[in-house]
Simulated scan of single mutants.
Amino acid sequence: MVTAAALRAHLVEAGIAGAVATPREKSLRSYRLFAAGDPRQTLGLDPARPWTQTALLRLMAERCGVSPDPGHTRGQEVIDPDRTLAGLEAFAVRLGEAARRREPVLIGTGHPHRLLGFYAGLAAALSAAGCPVLTPSHGRCVDMTTQFGLRTHNLWYAEGVATVRSVPGEGAMGAPAVHTHSPLPVRVALAGAAGGAGPLPSLVVGDHGWVCGAGQLGIEAIGLADADDPAVFVAEAEGRVSVAVPLDDAVRSDHYRPLTRYVLNRACLSQ
């Protein structure tokens, strides 16, 4: 069993919290783009009110623990490990509720290379507890704008976790999953669930556009977010996302295994 103290030490040692790899310059640029309404940063969220860069910095200092000093413009970003622990605790509480109620859950990630294992562990535990882990619109095309123009992708589930694969002209089997901030995959998944014989999810678990896109559509969502993902924390502040866990979302995938064990233990889902 991973204790809170041991996990806190691991978060700092692995760079998941504490001094993280995200550059301060990147965070501030993200806040500026979000304030300007750039869809690359709003992640499918339509904020209830305007957010200035100053207000975003204040929010991120409160929710993540980044420096609130606007004069701090360079260097490594900081995420408070105690805020990460508190977020994981709330995340675990909501997963435990879903398991006890056997709620249908949809899980998806825009960070498949780093976070797929974390989410796959949750999917397996929830399924074992009797929760329907949904896979709507499997293989469905998702047309997304990229730096190379409009590209066709496929929605693909791996171990119960939705990912997006770039497969122009052929099937998705064997194609690599891609990193994306887009809310389009969750919209396609939810449209498939609404149009099929199965249930709609009571809870969406994920990151980036998966949680913001679901929250915008009125479906409860919980997830992970980096210090340069202000949309997820704005969605939490505005009541569209129930839990936003602040952490670096781009460290080695094996470094997230203790987080999986901790969350499942706290949710009484350990296998």
Rank of each mutant, 00 (worst) to 15 (best):
P168L: 10
G108H: 11
A225H: 08
A14T: 05
L200E: 08
S253M: 07
V243N: 07
V188P: 02
D69V: 10
D207G: 01
A21Y: 10
G87E: 12
D229R: 07
A194T: 02
E103F: 05
G108N: 11
R58V: 10
G110T: 00
R24N: 07
L56N: 09
L115V: 05
R32Y: 07
P50Q: 11
R49M: 04
A267P: 04
E170N: 12
A123H: 12
T54S: 14
G121F: 01
V263Y: 06
H181A: 14
T3Q: 03
V20Y: 06
L59C: 12
E13G: 12
Y262I: 00
L28N: 04
A191R: 13
L269V: 00
P230I: 05
P104W: 03
A14L: 05
G209M: 03
G65V: 11
L264P: 04
A19G: 01
C212T: 08
G87Q: 10
G209V: 03
G206L: 09
T163F: 01
R102P: 00
S242R: 15
A92D: 05
A55N: 03
G44I: 03
D254S: 13
L7H: 08
L45D: 05
Q41A: 14
L88N: 06
P176H: 07
R187E: 15
S137I: 00
E238S: 07
G117K: 08
C268M: 12
T42P: 06
G174C: 01
G139E: 09
R101N: 10
V66A: 13
A225L: 11
A191M: 09
A158P: 02
E97P: 01
E220C: 10
H10K: 08
R257K: 14
V105Q: 04
G65S: 09
R32C: 07
R187Q: 15
G15A: 01
L7T: 12
C64V: 15
G117I: 09
G196C: 09
A92E: 08
R24A: 13
A123C: 11
L95R: 04
A99M: 10
C212V: 09
R40C: 01
A197S: 14
R58A: 15
Q216I: 02
S127R: 15
L190D: 10
L126K: 00
R261K: 10
I219V: 14
R266G: 05
A5V: 13
V245P: 00
V251A: 14
D207T: 02
A90N: 11
R29T: 14
E238G: 07
I16L: 15
D254T: 10
L269A: 02
A191Q: 13
L33T: 02
P185K: 06
E77H: 09
Q216H: 07
A250Q: 15
M1C: 13
G75N: 02
T54Y: 00
T135M: 14
L43H: 13
A48S: 14
N265D: 12
L33K: 13
A267E: 11
A158V: 15
V186G: 04
H10W: 09
G196R: 07
R63V: 13
A4C: 09
W51S: 06
A237E: 15
R100Y: 01
D80G: 03
S242F: 04
V186H: 03
A214Y: 00
A90M: 05
S242Q: 14
G75I: 04
A21W: 11
S27F: 13
L106N: 09
A221V: 02
R102D: 03
G110H: 01
E25T: 10
D82H: 03
A221Q: 06
R24L: 15
